[in-house]
Design a protein around this nucleic acid. Structure first.
Lengths: 138, 138
DNA sequence: CTTGAGCCTGTAGTTGCTACAGACCTTATA
DNA sequence: TATAAGGTCTGTAGCAACTACAGGCTCAAG
């Protein structure tokens, strides 16, 4: 059966390669409904087009920016609906940005405690340790 | 059967309450071997002592500082072995600290991109959106 | 015609919990 | 003493977001 794998259609590995996505993750995104079900060859092989490439890139970029799958699903719904407004997208972005800032603040607190404990450590061949004191109770 | 639940021994809920740990998490830490199996009453109820309280607090503090379960297991092994050295603990702490700093750097990069995209947004009732441009390709 | 690569499916594993269901035990009150 | 309410027990399933198989097709090259 002649498919157009060498023409416009991409197989899964090629889609993965072009987007930098893990091979199995492609299938995973399809399973959870983030990627539309692609057409298949007669033998059942998935055939992807440029729309799949851009959608997958969108998802991957959003993931890199720390958006959760559900957040991305929401963004995609807006885009797919075609009636998204900049205001709505901006609001979601700022909500996510504020989560990111909270995480940074949490990690900075951790960093300070760890750095202080490590600094108080002699680092010697002795059983007493400032880190353990920090962990065992103040 | 007389147990000493009201004396020195604590039941699970009380241990959880005193440490701020979730009730089920206590059992989870036991299952994965982070907490020693406590003695039981004749009816099978767990009975905890002050050693369990301190160990659980240790684990919880280390978790708050972002140590993974495996890292904590390593620390506890050192402490339990009794031959831990400050140098060893310090090294592990600094390794973890460097992971934390990497995460902070990653998040700061994300923060910058998100903030820039949101700033370029008009926020109006229009379909064009700077955030979407960021996600759809540079 | 065979070999090897690539694809298919379903499922299990990862991390660190959290939340049940259904059965037992304990305690207080009537 | 009966009973109702609560605590505890076990095992198991679920969460996010993948990742990695096993076992079976299909396809192209030699």
């Amino acid at each position: 059966m002649s498919d157009h794998a060498s023409g416009r259609g991409l197989r899964r590995a090629e889609l993965a390669r072009r987007t930098g996505c893990n091979l199995e993750t492609v299938r995973y995104y399809e399973k959870i409904g983030m990627m539309p079900d692609p057409p298949r060859t007669a033998a059942g092989y998935r055939v992807y087009g440029s729309d799949h490439v851009s959608r997958l890139k969108f998802i991957l970029r959003a993931r890199e920016l720390g958006f959760s799958i559900e957040e991305i699903r929401g963004l995609l719904d807006l885009v797919d609906g075609g009636d998204q407004t900049c205001a709505e997208i901006k609001e979601r972005t700022e909500r996510h940005l504020s989560n990111v800032r909270t995480k940074i603040a949490d990690l900075r607190r951790i960093e300070i405690v760890l750095a202080a404990a490590a600094a108080r450590c002699s680092g010697g061949d002795v059983p007493d340790c400032a880190v353990l004191e920090t962990l065992e109770g103040s």
